[in-house]
């Protein structure tokens, strides 16, 4: 008996509304972040992640009020990512009710931000997002390179080394997304997950590529992830979170199963 593996539905939020084809059957307003978050909480989600994809930076107030509203009614950990670049941003989100924040691009521009943030608010709040793409060199050796801006901009940084550096700086968790797999529904990049897990001791959230429940199982069992993040399989109602958990429990994974 120990800590359970976690399932984390991820919601894209644009201008205060959940986007990306959410179409629940029994939900009044599928675009309302509170409704969607409640729905996932009732299904037994272990945490919820909001990714703010609002393009204009002057809209930060919108995400703060979304977080405020959700956190007043849904009492599981809430993680918020997207456009966070300063301790001021982090504090504003935590004060609104977020429990953790994810940082990607800003950490690459200024790795010291992770150390400062971890020092200021505690490492349990700081999740570093790693977007990685496979790379094979002329000796046919596999490695992964970090990308920013949703996978558009290569950085030349090695993902495994970066994971080690970020743990050392004070990251509390790593959210690892395979840019090769994201959106493909072919499953996580298990080698990437495992390669990072072999090198760090902080929890790893696997992301990118989930198409079915076996993918979640493989992410945990083979990729050694502590948590699995998925969007579309839950949003489109292919599976509920509870169905996913039941499947994983039947395959021997330790999960928190709720009967609310």
């Amino acid at each position: 008996m120990t800590v359970t593996k976690r399932i984390i539905p991820c919601l894209d939020v644009d201008n205060g509304r959940v986007v990306k084809g959410v179409k629940f059957v029994d939900i009044k307003d599928a675009g309302n972040p509170v409704e969607v978050a409640k729905r996932y909480n009732d299904q037994g989600a272990d945490e919820i992640t909001f990714l703010d994809i609002t393009a204009s930076s002057n809209n930060r107030k919108t995400i703060l009020s979304v977080v405020e509203e959700v956190a007043s009614q849904v009492f599981i950990p809430l993680t918020v990512g997207g456009g966070i670049s300063s301790i001021k941003d982090i504090r504003a989100l935590l004060n609104s009710g977020a429990d953790k924040i994810t940082i990607n691009t800003a950490a690459i521009k200024n790795p010291q931000l992770i150390a400062d943030a971890s020092d200021a608010v505690g490492n349990q709040c700081i999740v570093v997002a790693i977007d990685a793409k496979r790379k094979i060199n002329k000796f046919n050796e596999l490695s992964w390179e970090i990308y920013t801006h949703g996978g558009r901009n290569p950085t030349g940084i090695d993902a495994i080394q970066w994971a080690i550096d970020m743990e050392q700086k004070g990251a509390g968790e790593l959210l690892v997304t395979s840019m090769d797999k994201d959106g493909t529904k072919q499953g996580f990049d298990l080698e990437l997950m495992k390669a990072i897990n072999d090198k760090v001791d902080i929890p790893i959230i696997a992301s990118g590529g989930v198409g079915n429940l076996e993918d979640l199982y493989n992410g945990i069992e083979i990729g050694k992830a502590d948590a699995v993040l998925a969007a579309s399989i839950f949003h489109f109602g292919t599976y509920t979170v509870n169905e996913a958990k039941e499947y994983l429990v039947n395959r021997g994974i330790n999960m928190r199963v709720t009967y609310d």
């Binding site: 008996m1 120990t2 800590v3 359970t4 593996k5 976690r6 272990d46 490492n123 349990q124 509390g172 968790e173 001791d201 902080i202 929890p203 502590d226 948590a227 928190r256």
Partner: peptide, 17 residues
């Protein structure tokens, strides 16, 4: 304490009984 056999991660983060 980190334990080689169980390889627990620190912090203890998540749901437990």
């Amino acid at each position: 304490k980190k334990n080689i056999n169980t390889r627990i991660k620190i912090p203890h983060m998540g749901w437990n009984k």
